[in-house]
Every structure is written in C-alpha cells, then in structure tokens.
C-alpha cells in the first residue's frame, strides 16, 4: 500500500535510524517531525508574504521603512552567535565535558535573552505608534511573522534552560547526548528561520 507517501518515507527514515543506529539527522526524530511542520508553516507564510507584497509593492516598501534595520541586524548577529555557541556546546558534550557544554549553552541562552529584549523594544515602538496587525497588510505580516518567531525563541530558551539544568547535573554524557542534540536542532531552526525572515521582511524591496 501507499507505494511512497511522504509519511511512509518518514517511517522509513525513523526505522532506519532506530534499527541501524546510523543517523542522518541529529537528535531525536520526534522533534524533527515537529521541525518539519514548523518549517512548512513558516514556508507557507513566507510565500504568502511574497505574493501579497507583489500586489501591494508600494505599501510594503513604504511601511518597511518604519522598521528598524539596525535592531534587526543586531538580532541576526546575536542569533548566529548563539547558534555558534550551541554548536560548541554539542561538541563539548560529545567529549564528555558537561561543564563546558553547560557554559556554552548558558551563553546561547543569554544571547537569546538579548534577542528578546531588542525585539520587545521593537514591538513597543510599533505599539506606541498605534500600529497593529489590523493596520495594513504589511504590518499584518510583519507582526505575525516576527511574533510567531519571537515565541519560538522563547520556546527555544525554555528548551535550552532544561538542557542546561540537566547537563550541569551530569544528566548527559559522551555516550548519551541525544537530548542536547535535539535541543540544539530546535535552536538552529529558530536561528535559520530568522536568517530568512530578516532579509525578507526588513530588507528586500
């Protein structure tokens, strides 16, 4: 049945992983299914943005000027750096260095905090200017996309916090680090989405 449905493929990937022990995706597959779904949602949102923009080029260009590119750019750097920290954290735990891993992840967590603060300042500026999702099509997309992403950053920070707590209590080791990899995968997704979102919404005209 179902010669090659996408879902069957998923099952095959998962079986392959759990039976052969070989991994083509880092971390737990359960989260990857979630990541696929999230990417799909964001993907559709990005495409929807592009199409709507094509119909309202002037409105989008004009409204885009009110965004703070500087804070967007800083946040891009912040997230990329945090992803670098997470990568270092993962390689630390692969060598069994729980403490180092914890510190790298704390660094990433703090950078996430900086992202959140900058983003809140941005949101506040828009709120003060009486701009909301109902103002126009551009702001609808801008606020929807960035708020949706904002919540993902918060979610990622919560996941990091759990992992930090566990790793500092020696809950992971050089043999058992799937949990760290899983959290790292989520964090990289959050970072990756922002790297698309930032140029798309803040820069491309």
């Amino acid at each position: 049945m179902e010669a090659q449905s996408p879902f069957t493929t998923l099952i095959e990937i998962s079986n392959y992983q759990s039976t052969t022990g070989k991994k083509n995706l880092p971390g737990d597959f359960a989260l990857w299914i979630f990541i696929f779904a999230e990417m799909l949602v964001f993907g559709v949102l990005f495409v929807a943005y592009a199409f709507t923009r094509a119909y309202h080029v002037e409105l989008f260009n004009e409204s885009q000027l009110t965004l703070s590119r500087t804070s967007g750019a800083i946040n891009t750097l912040v997230l990329i750096t945090s992803s670098y920290f997470v990568v270092n954290g993962v390689s630390a735990i692969k060598q069994g260095l729980s403490k180092q891993c914890g510190y790298w992840l704390i660094g990433a967590f703090l950078l996430g905090g900086i992202f959140i603060i900058i983003k809140i300042l941005e949101f506040h500026a828009k709120y003060a200017a009486d701009i909301s999702m109902s103002t126009n099509a551009f702001y609808m997309f801008y606020l929807s996309l960035t708020f949706f992403h904002f919540m993902h950053v918060l979610m990622g920070m919560i996941i990091l916090a759990f992992i930090i707590f566990k790793v500092l209590n020696d809950g992971y080791s050089a043999k058992d680090y799937v949990g760290v990899e899983t959290g790292a995968s989520f964090w990289h997704m959050v970072d990756f989405l922002w790297i698309i979102l930032f140029p798309l919404v803040y820069i491309i005209r």
Binding site: M1, S5, F7, A37, S134
Partner: peptide, 28 residues
C-alpha cells in the same frame, strides 16, 4: 479581524496532515 483569514487559512490547510498520518499509521 481580517488577519484571521491568513492565520486560519494557513493552519487549517495543514489540518489534513494529522488525519493523513493517522490513515497511514493504521494501515501500517
């Protein structure tokens, strides 16, 4: 508000996915 047209369309367009998964799951 009109923004629900976007949020609602995008997310509910994905609602068949879990049902499809359930079908393939049951047959598997």
């Amino acid at each position: 508000p009109a923004y629900w047209q976007w949020w609602g369309s995008i997310f509910s367009a994905l609602e068949p996915i879990p049902f499809f998964m359930m079908t393939v799951f049951a047959f598997n």
